[in-house]
Computed example of a mutant assay.
Amino acid sequence: MPRLDDLHAKPAYRDEVVLNTEVPQSARVWDRWLNGKDHYPIDRRAADRVATILPEIVDAARHDRAFLSRVVRYLAGEAGVRQFLDIGAGLPTVDNTHEVAQRVVPDARIVYVDEDPLVVAYARALLYSSHEGTCDTIGADARDVDTILNQAAITLDFTRPIGLLLLGILDHLVDDTEALATVERLVAALAPGSHVAIAHPTAALHGERFHQAMRLVMDMGGPPTVTRTPEQLARFLDGLELLNPGVVSCSRWRPDHSPFGTPPEVLQFCGVARKT
């Protein structure tokens, strides 16, 4: 599998990717917590310093990834969703959305969206669809709803149900009004039977240590980040049918059976709802 340095070496990418290796980038910091290899020294420093203040964030990142797998399996299987729009997808890692979905439904169609040109280039180089299905990547800011919808419509049929995934992206839309309006516009474009899944950090469990860790990353030049309460997260799903167990820790959204009982809560909370 190509590494980040390969993107420098291959001429095909030179005009597409503008890398800033002097400030941490959220997808690469996340990659560090997931034991990936696609990050730079600045990302490792940021990730490790945050983990020193808030070691629980490493488990949160991994439970968030496990939640992605479970919710996509549920949507592609029990819910009968055959199309996915994954906004704020981040760097490819193990069990990406299309891989999970196409194991259940080989002809599933997936569109990834990310504003980071590195993520887009890496995704286009590495994410291969099944023969029966389709996988595409769009470079766009999550708030640029018109661009996302227009380009996604090339691959997805918006007259049929879609699984909209907003995992780890809404916390970078720091203005509440703008964030709510962005989700509302995206949901308005979805057909009945579509589902919306969100995942978002909260300080409800760790209080000031969480805020201190996020300030550290922002002071190093990282992207603005905001925390929201579980009650605030539920507002993103207003007007939709919220599925059980509601807005909960990612670790506790329909966890796989474990002989060790209910998993502990983590700082990344989530919710899944259906458009009726």
Rank of each mutant, 00 (worst) to 15 (best):
L186P: 04
A197D: 09
L243Y: 02
V174G: 07
G239A: 10
I148R: 03
L166E: 12
L165Q: 12
A188G: 06
L240D: 10
H200A: 02
L164H: 11
R209H: 14
R185D: 10
L156T: 02
S194V: 06
V145G: 12
V174K: 05
R209E: 14
R228Q: 06
D219V: 12
L166R: 07
L216K: 04
E231Q: 14
L216C: 05
T147G: 05
P192M: 11
T177W: 04
G163W: 09
H172S: 09
I169K: 08
T225L: 14
T202Y: 07
R228K: 08
A213F: 03
R185C: 02
L186G: 06
V196Y: 02
I148Y: 10
L166Y: 12
V145E: 12
T229M: 04
P224C: 01
F210S: 12
L149S: 05
G193K: 00
G221S: 11
D176C: 03
L190F: 06
D146K: 13
L243R: 08
G246H: 11
D219C: 12
F236Y: 15
R143M: 09
A234R: 09
G168N: 11
G222Y: 09
D157V: 01
L165H: 09
L243W: 01
G246Q: 10
G222V: 07
P223Y: 06
L233D: 05
A234W: 00
H206M: 04
T159R: 05
I169V: 15
L205M: 14
P201I: 08
G168K: 03
V248L: 13
V183R: 02
R215T: 15
H195L: 15
T155M: 02
T159P: 00
T229I: 03
M220Q: 13
P245T: 09
D141V: 03
T229P: 03
T229W: 04
T202V: 08
V183A: 05
D157N: 11
L170C: 00
L149T: 06
V196F: 05
M220L: 15
I169W: 11
T225V: 14
L149V: 08
A203T: 08
S194E: 06
